[in-house]
Write a protein that binds this DNA or RNA. Structure first.
Lengths: 353, 353
DNA sequence: ATGAAAGCGCTAACAT
DNA sequence: ATGTTAGCGCTTTCAT
């Protein structure tokens, strides 16, 4: 084959500069080039080092990560699989992941499974084939059979937010029971104890389970009764207005709505506005997750804040420790980290009334 | 080396199943395995094919994409570099990119340069080293010296939204002049012709330039005068309230604000609220970009919508065509695609008054 | 219809 | 201090 003009443009096609080209230019062996790049092992004379550095610069050489990864069985790539990138909460998480990974020299491969199990499986397979060093995953709906195989193979995975039953894994969660309790306490304190709850379908998703369960628990603790018909579970595609309407047509009416999801909160607010119901005069609303817009909507939203950035940061740190531990053939003990939510008080529950 | 128990778990360490393992299990050559995987070339007897398929399944084999990519000089990976993932506009774009790429069998490597030139350069270098087949980039602030080298090497790149001067490239843009004209027409029609403009720093960013220039142009066309002190340029870290205050303290006051960025709009709205200025009674506001929250803020925002999803989709399609063209050693003619914005009328400009 | 072998670009023993 | 060489796991030419 035409082993020669490798480093020339072939009819306008991109040239690829390889380590060999650098070696030739610097008049050293490729090993030497490799060594100065990774400033590895044995001392190298300042002279040759400089020669190599010059050659690299002149040729604008960039090592082929595929070759390097193939050889080293390590890619410095971390796969991040998120269930729903549209939700700004996850972008905050992502920022935490990004920062922690950048510090440690890892790049990210981010995929969006859009709460679809099939997408998630395809994405994970892609990660595996691309030989990522580890995976951070916010599981989508449904139980993914691949999780089991990953975990039992001791592959570095950290789960985010949603617990995966039966698996002993690293998981970063936010204390949902506490979050809900914060919310209900606040409402009760404001004499808004006739509380309705809105949630997207539970579908076995742990935070959703915990928020609804936590709701019952918190209500009970306050000696309050839970009106089952005030627990509204609805699909993302469903018309929220119908449920809100239904809620307001009962014999008795709630004086507060606890929305367990930030996107859902927007839907509820719109329905309320359409129906001419005033917030917070007629009904209070308390949301989950702080967002860019929380304080700008009308009225400014009282909400449970989750430490999203921190969550991402911790997940990445944990994963990287996991990866290192595997590299050094040490044992790894999975752990669950529970972060604390907090309450941001604004005006949507009638605080200023 | 212990070439044997390759496919066994080494003290809990993940096993790697290779093509060789499959070949052995199916009692064929690795070539044959490769062939059935890629159902390539020569016919293979149904018998052997089935044997191989079985072996693959039993071993849960997944080909190593690094090795494959190294050999084929092709990764089926597309790098996406965005200037600001926090802005929901870009997530919509991303969705379009995702859909188009998935259809064509490409995976994405998404990075967030956070409007920082250094990050952007590092991210691009990472793309190159990882041998992505092409890059979609929304340039961050500043001129990136790498662009030149990419483009002149005929490397498949598509630019999004921001034009890169002097380079003959594929670029997908939205017609900013038209967008601004839509906005100003609307305002004038509502007798809100004393218009102030808010923008983030121009910094040579083409859509910002065009929106401000377009503003002047549109005003002139309506025979309106541009009050220079009403053109407010401010940094993301700056306190927006000061500028709003300043605006309201002049001898003459605007009756409308045209905000050229969706994040900025939230800031302005907050400042206005803090200052006790009513929207739209005292002043109207018209924003750029439609978002999830646009209709939920108070009052519902009248805004210029950009076809974000379409933008992403077109960019990806264009890039993939570029890649294919290179693979087939055909000539490629870069083009600029100009998409159309539209006006979404709600209540923030006093439409209902 | 199937297989042997070269080689993609790199790193890491193992020389010297 | 530097070089030689054997792979990493795959695809692809060339044999058979």
């Amino acid at each position: 084959m035409e082993r020669e003009n490798q480093s020339l443009k072939l009819n306008g096609k991109k040239m690829r500069v390889t380590i060999e080209d650098v070696a030739k230019k610097a008049d050293v062996s490729i090993t030497t080039v490799s060594r100065v790049m990774n400033n590895n092992y044995h001392h190298i004379s300042p002279d040759t080092k400089q020669k190599v550095l010059n050659a690299i610069q002149e040729l604008d050489y960039r090592p082929n990560a595929l070759a390097k990864g193939l050889k080293q069985m390590k890619t410095n790539l971390i796969g991040v699989s998120l269930s729903n990138l549209q939700n700004p909460f996850w972008l905050k998480v992502l920022e935490g992941i990004e920062d922690a990974c950048q510090d440690a020299g890892y790049s990210l491969m981010i995929v969006n499974s859009r709460d679809n199990l099939n997408n998630e499986m395809e994405n994970l397979k892609g990660f595996i084939m691309r030989q990522v060093d580890g995976i951070i995953i916010n599981p989508s709906i449904g139980s993914n059979p691949l999780f089991n195989s990953l975990v039992s193979n001791n592959f570095p995975v950290v789960f985010l937010n949603r617990k995966v039953s039966d698996l002993k894994t690293d998981t970063i969660e936010v204390d949902n029971l506490k979050g809900v309790s914060l919310a209900i306490n606040h409402l009760v304190k404001l004499n808004r104890s006739k509380i309705a709850l809105f949630s997207y379908p539970i579908d076995g998703i742990s935070p959703r389970i915990e928020r609804v369960e936590g709701f019952r628990k918190a209500m009970t603790q306050h000696g309050l009764e839970v009106n089952e018909s005030w627990i509204k579970i609805l699909d993302e595609k469903e018309d929220c207005k119908i449920h809100v309407q239904d809620l307001l047509q009962g014999t008795e009416q709630p004086n507060a709505i606890f929305s367990t999801n930030n996107m859902l909160t927007l839907e509820i607010l719109e329905a309320l506005k359409d129906l001419g119901v005033r917030v917070p005069e007629d009904i209070g609303i308390l949301g989950y997750d702080e967002t860019k817009w929380s304080k700008h909507i009308n009225p400014a939203l009282t909400t449970i804040e989750q430490p999203a950035y921190e969550m991402g940061k911790q997940a990445a740190k944990r994963l990287i420790a996991f990866i290192r531990s595997n590299e050094e053939k040490r044992e790894w003990q999975p752990e669950t980290l529970l972060l604390n939510p907090s309450l941001i008080i604004r005006n949507s529950c009638g605080e200023a009334l």
